[in-house]
Nucleic acid binder design. Sequence first.
DNA 1: CAGGTTTGTGCCTGCCAGACAAAAACCTGG
DNA 2: CCAGGTTTTTGTCTGGCAGGCACAAACCTG
Lengths: 242, 242
Amino acid sequence: MAGNGRDRVDIPEVNGQAMLSAHEALAVVLQIRAGELCVLLWRRALPPCEGEWALPGGRLGTEEDLGASIRRQLAQKVDVRDLSHLEQLETRSEPGRDPQRRTLATAYLGLVPAHIDPVVPDDTGWHPTVDLPAIAFDHASIVRSGRRRLRSKLSYTNVGFALAPPEFTMSELSGYYRAALGHDVAATNLRRVLLRRGQIEETGHSVPSGRSGGRPAALFRFRAREMEVTDAFAVLRPPGQA
Amino acid sequence: MAGNGRDRVDIPEVNGQAMLSAHEALAVVLQIRAGELCVLLWRRALPPCEGEWALPGGRLGTEEDLGASIRRQLAQKVDVRDLSHLEQLETRSEPGRDPQRRTLATAYLGLVPAHIDPVVPDDTGWHPTVDLPAIAFDHASIVRSGRRRLRSKLSYTNVGFALAPPEFTMSELSGYYRAALGHDVAATNLRRVLLRRGQIEETGHSVPSGRSGGRPAALFRFRAREMEVTDAFAVLRPPGQA
DNA sequence: CAGGTTTGTGCCTGCCAGACAAAAACCTGG
DNA sequence: CCAGGTTTTTGTCTGGCAGGCACAAACCTG
C-alpha cells in the first residue's frame, strides 16, 4: 500500500505479449420491422461457434478507433448510411467469454429507421428481440443490454428520431414506440408529450388515412436528428427552475 | 457487400500481432471531501507523461476481467473495501490517445462515502473536480464523463447511498448532493423526494444540532446499498400505471 | 425565560402525464 | 346526398410529483 511510485510493475504479466489481448467491436443493430423490434444477427462461418447466430462485428484494426471499426465492419452487413444512431454500449471482458482465445468486446448500439430495408448478405438476418434464437458467446445478454438501453433512452431522450422515417403520422410513431417499448403507447398522449418537449413538429402536410377511411393524419418530423437529453426528468433541479 | 460468409478475413491486419493491443482499466474515483466533489489522481512515475497527474489504473491481467482488474489496481491506492459503488463508464480507443503505444482504456466510475478518509500513497491525492490540474492523456475528459454520469444518476437512481455515510442528517445529505450536483439542494425538498421514493428512512435516532443550538436533527439511512433505478421518471409508462 | 438557530411540517402552486370523451374529417354503401 | 363507420385531433379531468415558502417545533445560550 506504500506509494513507491512504481506501482505499475506490480501488475502481473507473464511476458510482454501476455498483456496484449484481442479486441473486437460488436454492434446490436436494432430496427422496427413489421411492428416488432428486431436485431441484426449474422451466422458465423468460422469456429468457434461455427454456424451459430452472433452479433456482427470483428477485430479492431490497427489504425482505427472502436467507433470507426464497427462502422467499417457493419458496412459489410448493412449500408452504413442507413444507421441513424450509433453509441457505445459496454465492454465485456470475462476471460472465458470466448472459449478459443482471450477476447475483449466493446458493444455498440446501432439504430436503423423503420422506412429503410437495407440489403443484407445471405448469412445475415433480422430476428425479433422477443423470441431470440440460440446465440453464440455472451451475445444474447448483449442484445438484451442494448434493448434495455434503447427503452430507457426513449423515455428521456429524443432517440425516437432514429427509429422513425423523416416524416410520420402519430399512429405510425406510436407503433414504433410500442414495438420498441414492448407495451401500448397511446398516440394522443405521445403526441402531446413529444410536442411539449419540442422533440417533434408538424410538417404541414397530411396523408389520407389508410384503407377504410377516417380523418387524414397530419405528418410530423423530429426537430433534431442527434440525440438530446430531456431535462424534464432531471429531478433535483437547480433552484429557481421549478 | 455480398455475403460470402468469410467477412472476418477482410479486416486489415498487418500481422498476427498487429491485431492485439494493450488494454488498461482506469477509474474515476469520486468522493465528497470538505464539501467538494473530488477525484483521486495519481502522479505518474513512468513515461509517457512522467510526473503528470493521471487516473489510477493500469494493464489488464491475463486471467481477470476489467472489473476485477480495476479493483485490484485500486487496492494499491485506496482500500477497496472503501468503495461503495463501482460501474463501467466507457472505453476509449482513439489510436493517438497514448503517444507511446496503442492502448485501449476502459474507464470505471468508483465512489467512496464521505465519512471515510482512505489512506492513500504519497504520489496520490484528491483534487476538486472544479478546478482540475493538468491531467495526462485524455483522462481529464474521462473525469468529466464520470462526473456527468454521477450527476445524472443522482436524479433517477439511489446512488446517493454511495456518497453518504451509513447514517446522516438531512443537512449533511443535502450538502453531499450540493457538492456532487454543483448547485444548491434544499434539504426540505430532498427529504420529501427521497422519502416518497422509498430511498431513505428514519433510523429513530437523532443528534443535537451543531454548535449554536437548534432543533436536534433526525438521522436517516438509505434503505438499499445497491443501485436501483427510480421509475418515477420512466415516462411513457405502460398503460394503467398512471 | 427571551432571543437566536436549526430542523421539521404543512400548504400552495405549477407542471406533466395518462385516461376519457367529444368533435373533426374522411370514406363507403345505399 | 346522406347515414354509419373509421380514424385522427382537440379538449378536459384527474392524479402525482416537485419546488417554494411560511410557520411550528426543538434546542442552546446568556
